[in-house]
Design a protein around this nucleic acid. Structure first.
Lengths: 365, 365
DNA sequence: CCACTTATGTAACCAGTTTCCGTATGTCGG
DNA sequence: CCGACATACGGAAACTGGTTACATAAGTGG
């Protein structure tokens, strides 16, 4: 049932432009002949495509290599600085911003604390300042920002509006994408933070070789993001992965248990050091977490389960018990790994989502 | 990160062949000019494509229309009888077979009872006989069967082997796809029954306009199938949707409750007639069912929840309470509808899966 | 300075699509 | 029965995009 539109010759050019461009981006800088070999296209075609891309501003000719045999080849490079994207993590306690070029190289980061009790306008203004400061600090003209993506806890609907937030005051109903779009006057997207973190992990983290991924962002209130076939699955109302809502899962009060006496970090540290009482509490937490994780794993049957968020820093102190409980609950539990990015992952996922948008819309597929 | 292979001119022909063929299949029988208008291609191109398809045997020229103005147009039709596919439901108590042509029109059905205690070889032999009888009965040459798909309860892995069956004796480990492939000497696929039923519902049933679908096959032991973006999502080991495994969900014994005193059908009938005790028992069952359904709904956030299987015949007697309990458990519950096909749905889904395979592999995309 | 290596540039050719126009073949009205 | 009209077919020419082949350019190395 694949709806396939017919095409004339210009479709070929589109396809070949796409292929050449993505090959060039993988290579960084490359010669015509080399690109031809990689893509399987003739040198002529590659040349025509690159000429067009140069005109459009996406590609720049680089000085030829010296000291090699034979006539020096013309070299071309993708103009990663032709545009930039911004990923923003609007969290409960802090705002993290990453600015990246079109290669996804992060050129600037920003991190500011924000009160968990901050009202929505205050939080949004803090995010705006952080985003602008990050772009300005990188020496990037604001006009060259092509897309912004924001991630935040809670349910974010298809239009980028926060349709339900349990933890942040006044956050429900905020049109996050709409607001973020006005920061730079470009298109903006918004999604749940765990969703973005999952994207980041699949892009450059520990989930690179997995196709179906469940990512659980553990913290005060765990959230989850799902990748199906390497692509973000958000669901009808953007609520995919919100398994924590189910009372039977017990995610609501899982963390309460953990922070009852002292901070969570201390508990993990003590458990790691051999404190039996702390280990027991971590085990209880892991057990709670495993029920929700198992529900997601059984529903989706992913290749990989990634654990991220603040508590994931505890590493195997948390992952060990979690694996054990998960194995008890599931027919065949997938591999469980920790996130490779710390609390940068949401902003980095925002970068990826924004890049996806740019690649689709601006580069034109 | 869409990996796009470059192409030469022959790619165009492939694309346009595909587009023309699918347009022709929608139209049934059509003229060159009309197909040209629909696809946006020139009449010449359509003609060339159809000539090629005629040579390859997929298309046949039909006698021209009479009584219309102007020169009679050559008419072409898709040769739906160029091949056939078989869908088989290898259930606990019965085996259902559907044979369909390449348009998916079901040309023959077969249904035989089988004991729930039947050993695997007996069940397989019964399925084989039913499948052969169905094909023979339709007057279809066995050699023209291009693909077979079988659905069965339990977990079926990517290779079509039953990797876990709880209900059927000796069923775990059976290479269902391998066995079915020998029936007609063609490629065979196998999947979980709820998965196939979900496909059927999306193809021609109540889920036609939904993109993400959760289908729950209710019965002695409920199972679930998931469609993401209209495509079957089976997961790493084919276990996607096996939420019933989770003890907290309580699907294992949900039906026990219902059949404790008398048959399930009687309970539903009594509840429908106003028997308060029966209604209470149905409500209890619905409550149990709703927990697992909620877990799937929260994980996937589908556009639609379809309830199928034997018990779904009870209609709103079951769906009413289910909707109520689901609304309590989910943030925003999706629409809940009953399956439109009775116990034909699994076999019909098998037909669809087999057709997908034929369209992809044989027609060549 | 000459041999060698590698890339470029030009021309011919091919595949697929479209446009154009003349021709064929039917219906309809007188 | 015949001419007007409507509609579709069939072939030629042009265009776009791609490939192959080959001569030429521009370096390195002895």
């Amino acid at each position: 049932m694949t709806e396939l539109r017919p095409g004339d010759a210009s479709l070929l050019r589109k396809v070949n432009t796409q292929a050449t461009l993505s090959a060039l981006r993988r290579e960084g800088v490359s010669t015509l002949t080399r690109l031809g070999r990689i893509t399987g296209l003739s040198r002529q075609t590659v040349e025509a495509v690159l000429d067009e891309l140069t005109d459009r501003g996406w590609v720049r000719e680089a000085p030829p290599d010296e000291g090699v045999m034979g006539r020096p080849a013309r070299r071309f490079g993708f103009r990663a600085d032709a545009g930039y994207v911004v990923g923003v993590d609007v969290g409960g306690e802090r705002i993290v911003v990453s600015v990246a070029d079109l290669n996804g190289e992060v050129v600037a980061r920003e991190r500011v604390a924000v009160s968990e009790e901050a009202a929505a306008p205050v939080r949004l203004e803090a995010a705006r300042r952080a985003a602008l400061a990050c772009v300005d600090g990188a020496g990037v003209s604001r006009a060259r920002v092509l897309a912004v993506s924001a991630g935040t806890p809670g349910v974010v609907d298809r239009s980028g509006r926060v349709s339900l937030s349990i933890t942040l005051p006044g956050w429900t109903g905020v049109d996050l994408a709409g607001v973020a779009g006005r920061w730079f006057g470009c298109t903006a997207l918004a999604a749940n933070d765990a969703n973005l973190a999952a994207l980041a992990e699949h892009w450059r983290g520990s989930a690179q070789h997995a196709s179906d991924v469940v990512y659980i962002l553990v913290g005060h209130r765990p959230g989850a993001g799902i990748l199906i076939g390497g692509r973000l699955h958000r669901g009808r109302s953007g609520a995919a992965g919100e398994i924590g809502t189910l009372r039977q899962v017990g995610w609501e009060d899982a963390a309460m248990e953990l922070v009852k006496e002292g901070g969570a970090a201390e508990v993990f540290a003590a458990a790691g050091a051999g404190d039996a009482h702390a280990a027991h509490r971590v085990d209880r937490y892991a057990e709670n977490l495993a029920i929700g994780a198992a529900a997601l794993v059984l529903a989706v049957d992913p290749d990989l389960l990634v654990i991220g968020g603040g508590y994931s820093r505890a590493g195997d102190v948390l992952l060990g018990p979690l694996r054990r409980h998960l194995a008890e609950l599931c027919l065949s539990a997938p591999e469980v790994v920790a996130s490779t990015f710390g609390d940068e992952s949401v902003a980095l996922g925002g970068v990826r989502l924004a890049l996806d948008h740019v690649e689709r819309e601006v580069l034109g597929l």
